[in-house]
Design a protein around this nucleic acid. Structure first.
Lengths: 170, 170
DNA sequence: CCAGAAATGTTTAGGCTTGAAATAAATATC
DNA sequence: GATATTTATTTCAAGCCTAAACATTTCTGG
């Protein structure tokens, strides 16, 4: 996605209520495009660094980050719901991390359907190094923002989509 | 990506200058995660609607949006630089849109290497309908924000990554 | 106990995405 | 004019991603 939009949308008149109307709608559309652009910009940067410096990817990093936080490991389903990606997706990423020796699958005692996934020592050690770099990349990219600005931005973003987050855990 | 982070980062002492230091770094990292989360949330929503209501995808929508803005069409390379995706990526998306009759490839007179891609009437008509819906989805998702808030948010996001945007066109 | 429902993971088909290699055409250099 | 470089696009290999279909296993209510 990048910059779409196209035509007016709700041509009909709007009363007033909170804040509807064509102008507001257009502004929100522009905001969304800006959010997306910003996100992609940073994401591309991080992805590239991850590839260059660690020959790794963002999804791999995300899986490792989730596992890093829970030393005892996570079930596949916990992993996919925490990362908010599909089950089958996690299967593939985990397969590759396993074959790289960074994580292991271990069976669950009471439930023969389930599997727990855990970082190996090598995985834990690698992730630590990646996390340090990751933080410094982001710090550099967003370095133009003061802590106050960053905090305010977070709060507003939070408010922007709170209604959508009922189905979330964190 | 979802929620990583991991460890302190720059353990070394920081002087003062503008605003560095561990706390600031952590705050920026959290901001990045928030931006990403917000973006993914909206993106997932839009993607799902696009699929349900038009049996289409975001990349297809993006290509059509870019072409909608330029009636005379765009060359493949313009398209990929405008959307900021790789050349080969555009080739695939365009292939599918062509086989759906929504766009056409036409040769360029002076340059037999190049191709221009243009919306067909069917494509133009479909995109108009999609754009109307798209705007209304976004309006609904971000409806909790006033125009003033949205405008302020845009400005801050803009400032946040301006240093990164030297290599951009728009 | 046992049949149906629910939960856990994997597989599959289709599409998106990238970086790198391959083509082919245009341009610059000698 | 022949060679080398650059430009425009496609192809390829690998990985990411989803929804849907599938196989197992567990749970639930008779």
């Amino acid at each position: 996605m990048s910059a779409h939009s196209g035509e007016p949308a709700v041509a009909a008149a709007e009363t007033a209520g909170k804040e509807s109307g064509r102008a507001a709608s257009k502004t929100r559309l522009r905001l969304w495009l800006r959010i997306l652009k910003t996100s992609r910009l940073i994401e591309t940067e991080v992805r590239e660094k991850l590839r260059e410096e660690f020959d790794s990817t963002l999804p791999r990093f995300d899986v490792m980050a989730a596992l890093y936080r829970v030393e005892t490991g996570l079930r596949m389903s916990d992993l996919s719901s925490e990362l908010r990606v599909s089950n089958g997706n996690v299967t593939g990423i985990v397969d590759r991390l396993v074959s790289d020796g960074l994580i292991v699958r271990v069976p669950v005692d009471n439930d023969r359907r389930a599997t727990i996934v855990r970082l190996t020592n090598a995985g834990r050690e690698l992730f630590q190094r990646m996390a340090v770099k990751h933080e410094s990349w982001v710090d550099e990219i967003l370095g133009g923002l003061s802590t106050a600005e960053a905090t305010r931005l977070m709060a507003t973003l939070d408010a922007a989509v709170r209604p959508l987050e009922d189905n979330e855990s964190e």
